[in-house]
């Protein structure tokens, strides 16, 4: 029983890598890249208010954290490949971690596909998302930027914190309604009558 539970946790963490998952991650990453490059509102150097962070919310809800994290990682790489404005591995890693944490949903019992998402899940989602963003963009990305490219620490951290705030706004303020909308969508629609 205990072993079984362990296995199911690792499956929840890694996702099941069938063809559907591969395709979803590929397409999710492509969406992430397109949105990051073309649908964003610049706030600061290298920092944008972007709806791209709704993609890991979506993929995480359906497939779990690792697929979501890879969507963030490859999505960011795609964005760099499309734009041609340099490679920023400090942000790739940040996006991987942030998206991974955002995608933890199935681990604390939110099962969007079965129509299960309640206030408790919403609260955990909000808290973990903010913590995840703090770790990734508030600490890891700026730290790596200082190491890799020798930027000014205070500026890098300021950029990181702005990213935490702006991406947090997108992931939580826009992400929660998205999650509720998806839950409604997957719930069975019975008792529909014409009036």
């Amino acid at each position: 029983m205990l072993i079984e539970k362990k296995e199911s946790y690792s499956k929840k963490l890694l996702g099941s890598w069938d063809t559907k998952t591969v395709v979803s991650v590929a397409i999710g990453a492509a969406l992430f890249g397109v949105l990051l490059d073309f649908v964003s509102i610049p706030v600061f150097t290298n920092t944008k208010l972007s709806v791209a962070y709704l993609i890991p919310v979506f993929v995480g809800a359906l497939f779990g954290p690792l697929p979501a994290g890879l969507v963030g990682l490859f999505g960011n790489i795609f964005a760099d490949l499309l734009a041609g404005s340099g490679f920023w591995p400090d942000w790739w890693i940040g996006n991987f971690i942030a998206s991974f944490v955002i995608g933890l949903l199935p681990l604390y019992g939110a099962r969007i596909k079965d129509g299960i998402f309640n206030v408790k899940h919403a609260t955990i989602f909000t808290i973990t998302t903010i913590i995840g963003l703090l770790i990734s963009f508030g600490f890891i990305s700026p730290f790596l930027n200082t190491v890799f490219y020798g930027g000014e620490k205070a500026i890098n951290f300021a950029q990181g914190w702005i990213a935490v705030v702006s991406d947090g706004i997108v992931a939580v303020v826009a992400g929660l309604p998205l999650l509720y909308a998806l839950t409604r969508r997957y719930k069975k629609n019975s008792n529909l009558t014409k009036e």
Partner: peptide
């Protein structure tokens, strides 16, 4: 499977941006 994520993802980007 990771390589597929990269090539399939980049392959679908023109379609996605057209849809957008």
């Amino acid at each position: 499977k990771i390589c597929t994520v990269v090539s399939l993802g980049l392959r679908s980007i023109p379609d996605i941006s057209r849809n957008y």
